[in-house]
Design a protein around this nucleic acid. Structure first.
Lengths: 166, 166
DNA sequence: TACTGATTCGAACGTTCGTTAGAATCAGTA
DNA sequence: TACTGATTCTAACGAACGTTCGAATCAGTA
């Protein structure tokens, strides 16, 4: 809180005029972030019907937000499970929504292409690929969100499709 | 440190008889963990020459250790970058070694099969898939390391091979 | 037994943290 | 002008933290 006070220019006590507690402030930040990501995703998915294209949009949407707000996403990834009961479950609900959207897209793909694999493992592997980026992405060395989304999308989609070969 | 004191049954001050500081203790734990993982990997890779098989071994070795020590790996993933100068760089060196082994295996695979993709993105995507597991794996619901290694290996290897299709 | 070094501990130290009481200041209204 | 509610601040409180001091205990040796 003292860091936030210094960074925002408001006194330490002043922060508590606007936010009831440190935990509630973190809750509001998390809620705002995850709600925004889900909302943008819904806008971008509307009108697209090809499951493969939809999954590419999912990946791009996710990575664009992560790379546009690297410091925030680092904190949110670290503080994922620290919120107590009420706060925690509301955030968990939004995340579950987001997770379910991805499960839905993958199930569509499976149905359309007659594929056979564990949706759960696939979705969580994809989340891992995308979320881990906060530990390594260096904007001076690495490509931008669009290119990385392309490459991760290639790996993931080819990995999950093309079944039965070899 | 008070938690460790309680859990170990030794007094708080007693811990400081064996470990110079909290940071040095974390350093020793990290060093031991990562050294062990690298050493086991080297043993398992010896004698195997097929790059695809080697990558499968890499994944299995990594996941087995993670799922056998979930609490430790959660902490180590969280505290990845908190060690100061000297401590930090020694750990970073071990991790770089580990990273380079994986890069080597992938480069072998590319050479053998004439593939074309960014090794860096591929390796870091693979690490993401594997490391993220500490956030979701539930031993009462999810499969064991062997099966998950199989499924992640399928996704990753198919994703990175089979290039030029579609 | 007396002595020594290794081990373990209770009790504190100084610092940082989340939070709050209460006073000061400001903007708008009567 | 006097008053009110909203805003902002200084200064502290109590708890938790990493660490250390100095005393107690133990095992082995002479």
């Amino acid at each position: 809180m003292r860091d936030l006070s210094r960074a925002s220019g408001m006194s330490l006590a002043g922060l508590y005029y606007y936010f009831q507690s440190k935990e509630r402030l973190l809750f509001l930040i998390q809620k705002h972030t995850f709600t925004t990501i889900v909302q943008r995703l819904r806008e971008r998915l509307a009108g697209v019907t090809d499951p493969e294209q939809q999954i590419r949009i999912f990946i791009l949407n996710h990575l664009e937000y992560f790379l546009a707000n690297p410091a925030s996403m680092k904190v949110l990834s670290h503080e994922a499970d620290v919120l107590k009961n009420g706060f925690g479950s509301e955030i968990a609900a939004i995340k579950r929504q987001y997770y379910r959207i991805c499960v839905g897209l993958l199930d569509d793909l499976k149905r359309e292409q007659g594929l056979e694999f564990s949706t759960r493992i696939a979705v969580l592997s994809l989340f891992g690929m995308m979320n881990w980026i906060y530990t390594w992405h260096n904007p001076r060395v690495d490509a931008d969100a669009g290119q990385i989304a392309q490459e991760m999308g290639d790996i993931f989609l080819r990995g999950v499709m093309n079944r039965g070969r070899r």
